[in-house]
Amino acid sequence: MKNIFQKTTILLTVCGLASCAAEQDDAETMNDAAAAPAVSNIDKFEAYTQRFSETTEITQHHATGHVGDFFFTHWKDGGAASLTLSPEGDFSVSWEGGGYNYVGGPGWHYGDEDRVIGYRFDEDSGASYITLYGWGYDETMSTSDPAHLVEYYVLQRWTYDPSQNAEYGTTFVSDGIEYSTYRSVREEKPSINAPSTFYQYWSKPAEQRPLGEDQKIIFADHVQAWAESGWIIPDMNNFDASDDPTYQVMAVEVFNPPEDGTASGQVWDGR
């Protein structure tokens, strides 16, 4: 992808998985237009959820916020990775090789079953996953039931096959693309609600989606396919988790990347 970003480095508050540190390092650069008020209606996360009006580069270990109207999440447990996002939805993720996990990208601070996601990836030099990614959470369910918390993926490109050691669900067609569904369990792993035991739902296309072309994900088709196997997503518009809202983003994920890499593209509302 051509370098369309005029990068403005913004110092975001650094957050841990279970709590947000209020301490802030000295700012290298603070843009006058960057420090807008916290996003309304999610005051619980105002310590590290901010709104930026210009293209922003995020480098911290855990940060969320909005650039223009697009929400972003940016999380890593080590290593070096950065997310650059414009108010128009253009974004780029860059990472260095190493032994760590990173996931981040732009989208919305809540999931919507009826959302249609438009996107295009122009560059992918080896991400573990290029995916629609999000969470559902029901705080009224027992935490001993993995269904109380669901991490979901609608894969588009990948270098690691998540169907390994996962339960097969069904095969279906959405927007002319054949997908197969899988479910796996994560036991006491990082989540939007501290280390927890939870389900992962996967939709995996028969073929990886190409670069350089506009694509569309009809999320309702995936929710229906999962439900046909009895796999229900809990509340996707929930602010009761301890660490993050139940966001829905077009994400880049890398884990233990063997070398440096970049993925870049654009996301938009596809309806």
Results as ranks from 00 to 15, higher is better:
H222N: 06
Y137K: 09
P245E: 01
Y110P: 02
K2Y: 14
S94G: 10
G265C: 03
A63F: 00
A263Y: 12
F255D: 01
H62G: 05
G107W: 00
N3H: 00
D25A: 15
R186E: 13
S86T: 03
V39E: 02
P106S: 05
D122A: 07
T73K: 14
A27C: 14
D122M: 06
W226G: 04
A194M: 13
Y48R: 10
W158V: 00
I130N: 11
D145K: 00
Q248H: 10
H109T: 04
L12Q: 01
G99V: 07
E213Q: 11
W135E: 05
S174K: 06
G78N: 09
D145R: 01
F239Q: 15
E228F: 08
T181F: 03
K204E: 04
H74V: 00
H148A: 09
E54W: 05
F70I: 02
F219V: 01
P37Y: 14
G270C: 13
T13V: 04
F172V: 01
W226N: 01
Y129A: 07
G105T: 05
G79D: 05
T143W: 15
G118V: 12
F198Q: 05
Y199L: 04
Y168R: 07
Y137A: 08
L11R: 00
Y129C: 13
W75E: 09
S184M: 05
S264I: 07
Y100C: 00
S92E: 15
A18Y: 08
G270R: 07
S94K: 09
S128R: 06
V252K: 03
S264W: 03
Y179D: 03
E207L: 02
W135R: 02
A166H: 06
S242C: 13
K204G: 02
N101D: 10
T171Y: 07
Y201P: 06
T56S: 08
G111E: 14
G169C: 14
A38G: 12
V14Q: 12
D221A: 10
D175A: 15
N101Y: 05
E253R: 14
G265N: 12
R120C: 01
A263K: 02
L155W: 11
A36M: 12
Y179L: 00
R51L: 14
P146M: 15
H61A: 02
D138G: 12
E188K: 13
D269E: 13
N238D: 03
T59S: 06
T8A: 15
T131Y: 04
P234L: 08
G230S: 11
T73V: 15
F45A: 08
E113D: 11
T140G: 15
G212Y: 06
A241Y: 12
D124G: 02
N101W: 04
T246N: 03
P210I: 01
P190D: 12
Q6I: 13
A251E: 05
H74Q: 10
A206S: 11
E88L: 06
Q6S: 09
Y129P: 11
A127N: 06
E213R: 04
Y102D: 05
G79S: 04
W108Y: 14
D69M: 07
S163H: 09
D269H: 09
L85Y: 06
D43P: 10
Q164Y: 13
D32K: 14
R120I: 03
G78Q: 08
W75I: 08
H66K: 15
P257C: 08
I10T: 12
T8P: 07
D124T: 08
E188Q: 15
H148P: 07
A206V: 07
E46K: 11
K7P: 01
G97M: 06
G68F: 03
D25F: 13
